[in-house]
Computed example of a mutant assay.
Amino acid sequence: MSLPLPPGDFRAYLFDCDGTIVDSMPLHYAAWCSALDEWGCEFPEELFYAWGGRPIADIIATLNARHGLTMPVDTVARRQEELYHRSLPELTAVPEVLAHIEDAHGRIPFAVVSGSTREGVTASLGTLGLLDRFEALVCAGDYTRPKPDPEAFLLAARRLGVPPADCLVFEDTELGIQAATAAGMASVRVPQPWERAAAA
Rank of each mutant, 00 (worst) to 15 (best):
N64C: 12
R107T: 14
P26I: 03
S116C: 11
I59E: 05
C139W: 02
L14Y: 08
I21Q: 13
L98C: 09
L63R: 00
L3Y: 11
F153T: 04
V76R: 01
A12N: 05
L3S: 14
V97W: 08
I59Y: 00
E81W: 02
R86K: 11
I60L: 12
G115Y: 00
Y49Q: 05
I59T: 14
G129Y: 01
Y13E: 01
P109W: 05
L155T: 15
A200P: 02
P150C: 04
A197S: 10
E81M: 07
F110H: 03
G184N: 12
R11M: 06
L155Y: 02
Q178M: 15
A200Y: 07
A57F: 08
E45C: 12
D74W: 01
N64K: 03
H100D: 05
W32P: 08
P72V: 06
F134E: 10
E135F: 00
A180D: 14
L36Q: 09
H105L: 07
T62H: 10
T181N: 09
A93G: 14
D23E: 13
A186L: 08
A123V: 01
E96V: 02
T144G: 00
G176M: 05
L168V: 12
P163D: 04
S114F: 02
Q178W: 04
L154R: 12
A182C: 13
I56V: 15
E38C: 05
A183H: 11
M185Q: 15
Q192P: 05
G115D: 02
E38N: 06
P72L: 14
P55V: 09
P95I: 03
A30W: 00
P89V: 03
E119C: 10
V73K: 01
T122L: 15
C139Y: 07
G52R: 02
P72Y: 09
N64H: 08
A57I: 11
H28E: 08
L128M: 09
P163Y: 08
T20Y: 00
I56K: 00
A152S: 15
F134V: 11
R78P: 04
F10G: 01
G141A: 04
E81Y: 02
G53F: 02
C41S: 14
A50L: 13
P55Q: 04
A180W: 09
Y29Q: 03
E46F: 01
N64W: 03
H85W: 10
I108Y: 00
